[in-house]
Design a protein around this nucleic acid. Structure first.
Length: 524
DNA sequence: GGGATGGTGC
DNA sequence: CACCGCACCATCCCA
């Protein structure tokens, strides 16, 4: 083979150039191999060029073969997978890139078959590229007026808090500086025990919570931090990120970052928009649909817990989901022997925390911290939990060794692979961490598979049904759509069906649909 | 520029 | 004693 490049920028007759490119890219008989197909779509689509017969994307291949190598630069991949010693060719960098891409593809395809990640590649990662592209291009409409008003409100509140903090501290200082806050703690003779890794006084949230029981100042610091965080990260940042052409915010969905197969979102990250606090919810209300549309949010209900039931085959948990029970309530009754309504209320709270914690292999320490139980009580709770969910216990105990036997590899249900070399590390702490990551992968990784499959199914179903809803975001277990008002009902049905039937596992998948005039009110 | 610290989400 | 999985991003502060 040979490689060449086309200097589009230096071309006098742009129209003729586009036409030439179009003939090649539109032609479904000419198979294309890319490095970063989503980027190619961003470049080609505005020129009116379709990318047909996308056969391979070496960036995705490299990610699926090793999701934890941070660097996917083409030359780095070349060094790792090609025999030839590569030197960056400054003269012919573009031709070289094309050449390396094709060579890599030939190397990586057989490796993918060997490692059995070809299925997740062909069925999920490669076909989802245009769906992700469409989401990025669609963007999310934001009411900047709501944000501007919020900014003023927050500013006034931050100023008020700052003055009150100065009063209590006895002097002025930079409230945003943990180091200076630490100095204040010393001056006020607060009993501060926890230190950071670098020996400084810790001013983290749990330290502040502790101190807040006795003092006013830390309470105000907590409030100040919340507001400063929300204002700085979201309210004041978003207006400048609104695209001048579209008037919308266009995030980037990264497909090759998370080791578990999740997407990540940057510039801005729309996957961590606040929801917990009242101020946070007010920010969510700034995310709105276009005129004539409503927002539709579709959430998988407890997808990771359902997957826990599926992969562990725990009979109690399977049964519970099959009967569509409230799993936290079931746990409260079965594990914590809740009987009366009052008991149930409190024990359900703890049960919920344990259920969520279990996916991360929560220990007595972590559970105690989250529930307010003592370490001793937390230990007992975990024991009781495993006594009820024996299949879960067995799975937790056996998976790390199974993974070691498989060559320090764990997989999601669709065959997505995660390498965990530290499963065999002699350092106990690193090994323990790898074991937690191993246990988490079947849940988080499989959930990623399912949501991605769902995105493909929904995309196809909307096209098939000639519906005009646009998918505008994915937030791990949630899909957000902008839907024309007169199609809301049918779209809801189609989306729910496509998501719930995305894959067949041993428990039903349940999707909750919400509608609203902003992202907050659309949350089911 | 980058580590340390802290804080949002699922 | 030790921190519980996956991300992104802000500010501070020293280099």
């Amino acid at each position: 083979h040979s490689a060449d490049y086309f200097d589009f920028a230096g071309c006098a007759d742009k129209e003729a150039a586009v036409k030439l490119l179009q003939e090649a890219f539109d032609n479904g008989l000419i198979e294309k191999v890319t490095y970063d197909a989503k980027r190619a779509l961003h470049l080609l689509t505005p020129l009116g060029i379709k990318l047909e017969a996308l056969h391979d994307d070496v960036l995705l291949q490299a990610y699926l073969l090793d999701g934890e190598r941070g660097n996917y630069d083409l030359l780095e991949l070349g060094c790792s997978y090609l025999n030839s010693s590569l030197m960056a060719d400054r003269e012919n960098a573009l031709a070289q890139a094309a050449d390396i891409t094709l060579q890599l593809c030939d190397q990586l395809n057989p490796r993918m078959s060997e490692m059995q990640v070809d299925k997740v590649y062909r069925d999920i990662e490669l076909p989802i590229v245009p769906v992700l592209y469409d989401i990025e291009r669609a963007g999310f409409l934001v009411d900047t007026k709501v944000l501007a008003e919020l900014s003023v409100v927050m500013d006034a509140e931050i100023t008020r808090l700052t003055q009150a903090i100065y009063q209590l501290a006895g002097r002025e200082f930079n409230v945003g500086s943990p180091a200076q806050l630490g100095d204040i703690f010393e001056e006020l003779n607060f009993e501060v025990s926890k230190r950071t890794t670098t020996g400084k006084i810790s001013t983290s949230r749990d330290v502040l919570d502790e101190l807040a029981e006795k003092y006013e100042l830390p309470r105000l610091i907590i409030e100040h931090r919340e507001l400063a965080k929300l204002k700085g990260t979201y309210v004041d940042a978003f207006p400048s990120l609104v695209n001048a052409q579209t008037g919308r915010i266009h995030t980037t969905l990264n497909q090759t970052i998370a080791a578990t197969g999740r997407l990540s979102s940057t510039d801005p990250n729309l996957q961590n928009i606040p929801i917990r606090t009242e101020m946070g919810r007010r920010i969510r209300r700034a995310f709105i649909p276009a005129d004539g549309c409503v927002l539709l949010s579709a959430d998988y209900s407890q997808i990771e817990l359902r997957l826990l039931a599926h992969v562990t085959q725990d009979p109690v948990m399977l049964e519970s989901f099959k009967h569509n029970e409230d799993i936290h309530e079931r746990t409260a009754r079965a594990v914590f022997k809740a009987r009366t309504p009052e008991e149930l209320k409190e024990k359900r709270r703890v049960a919920k925390i344990v259920n969520f914690g279990i996916a991360y292999v929560i220990g007595p320490f972590g559970l105690a911290q989250r529930t307010g139980l003592s370490r001793h009580e937390a230990k007992k709770v975990i024991e009781d939990y495993y006594a009820t969910y024996k299949g879960v216990k067995k799975f937790m105990d056996e998976l790390p060794q199974q993974a070691r036997d498989a060559g320090d590899i764990v997989r999601s249900i669709y065959g997505r692979m995660r390498r965990l070399p530290d499963l065999s590390n002699r350092n106990g702490q690193l090994r323990a961490r790898a074991e937690r990551e191993a246990v988490n992968m079947p849940m988080q990784g499989s959930a990623s598979d399912i949501v991605k499959l769902a995105m493909l199914h929904v995309d196809a179903a909307l096209k098939r049904e000639k519906l005009h809803a646009k998918m505008i975001l994915q937030v791990h277990d949630e899909l957000v759509f902008e839907v024309p008002r007169d199609e809301v009902e049918r779209t809801g049905t189609v989306v729910k069906e496509a998501m719930e039937q995305a894959i067949k596992i041993d428990v039903p998948l349940l999707v909750e649909i919400g509608l609203g005039d902003n992202w907050m009110s659309a949350k089911p």
